[in-house]
Computed example of a mutant assay.
Amino acid sequence: MKFARVSNGYGYATARIQGGVAYPCEDWRTGDPARDSFVPPTLDPASAQNAAAIPLSELSFLPPIGGSNKLICLGLNYRDHVSEVGNENVSPYPSLFTKFPDTMVGAGSPIVRPTVSDAFDYEGEIAIVIGKGGRHIRKSEALSHLFGFTILMDGSVRDYQGHSVTAGKCFYASGSVGPWIVTSDEIPDYRKLTLKTRLNGEEVQSSVVENMIYDIPTAIEYISRWTPLAPGDVISTGTPAGVGFARTPQLYIKPGDLVEVEVSSIGVLANTAVAEA
């Protein structure tokens, strides 16, 4: 099944998505969804089927992460990306950074190129959403803690990243996530997932999950050693080669550009860039 957080302009709710239609799984909530957490719904097709059907054309997508959810990202997790940035020393442990929830917008919302930099880069990624929390999760049990898979575009401001990873990765509304979460039972072998990123229709990244250095169970085991994982927490699994700053000439996102990240069995996350007001 597919689940998303959607807005009708007056409130927001978690909904099951099927065939261009949303079936809300809860009453519509008001307030700021960025301050609320995303709680994975129970997988109950019978109860979900009783909800009123709303065409997706009448709704907008919100990120499936809220203010109390963790968003943890793996860096340098594809060998070809490690090579293109000139770092051939692969650590036995994954490199991690965090992103603030307000760095993320939903599918279809504009991503913002900041006024202080022209070096606004794309990174297409596959992300996982935790369904069952835990601490010190064994690698052999890690996949049982998954709720599902989604898509993330890690917008990176490269010059700021050069002197502060936190700053370069956490500019407001610089990235996106969604449009929905596909539950893990719909993806029997995540290692076969393929990822493609397009900038204005031109393919700039392409890879398969099997090319990851640290697989998803390894990431869950390592991260849960130092922080408890809770339902709704998101782990983004890194980006493959083809990023803009490693190209000659460099290729950065400009206002008006369309960035699309497509993952097999999940869908397409599409956002247009705008200049910061």
Rank of each mutant, 00 (worst) to 15 (best):
F3V: 15
V6P: 07
G9M: 01
G11E: 09
G11D: 06
A22M: 01
C25S: 14
E26Q: 15
E26R: 14
D27K: 14
G31I: 00
P33L: 13
A34Q: 08
A34E: 08
T42Q: 14
T42G: 15
D44N: 15
S47F: 13
A48G: 13
Q49Y: 07
A52W: 01
S57M: 13
P63G: 00
P64Y: 09
P64L: 09
P64A: 04
I65A: 09
G66W: 04
G66V: 12
G67C: 03
G67H: 05
N69R: 13
N69G: 02
L74N: 07
G75Y: 06
L76M: 14
L76W: 03
N77V: 06
R79N: 03
D80G: 04
G86H: 06
E88W: 04
N89C: 00
S95C: 08
T98N: 03
T98K: 03
T98W: 10
F100M: 10
F100Y: 12
P101R: 10
D102L: 04
T103Y: 00
G106C: 05
P110F: 09
P110V: 03
V112P: 12
R113V: 10
R113F: 11
V116E: 12
S117P: 11
D121L: 04
E123G: 05
I126Q: 03
I128W: 07
G131L: 06
K132I: 12
G134C: 05
A142N: 10
L143D: 02
L143F: 05
G148M: 00
L152H: 11
L152G: 00
M153P: 04
Q161P: 04
G162N: 04
H163I: 09
V165F: 11
A167N: 05
A167G: 05
A173T: 05
P179I: 10
P179S: 04
W180F: 13
W180A: 03
I181R: 06
S184K: 14
D185H: 01
L195M: 06
K196N: 09
T197H: 07
T197G: 00
T197M: 10
R198H: 14
R198Q: 00
L199S: 12
N200W: 10
Q205I: 04
Q205V: 05
S207V: 11
V209L: 03
E210H: 07
Y214R: 05
Y214A: 08
P217M: 11
Y222M: 02
S224A: 02
S224R: 03
W226N: 03
T227C: 13
G232E: 08
G232Q: 13
D233N: 09
V234W: 09
I235D: 01
T239V: 07
P240N: 06
A241M: 01
A241L: 03
A241Y: 00
A241V: 05
V243S: 14
T248A: 04
L251V: 12
Y252A: 02
I253P: 04
K254Q: 15
G256D: 00
V259C: 13
E260N: 08
S265E: 15
S265K: 12
V268K: 11
V274M: 00
A275I: 04
A277L: 12
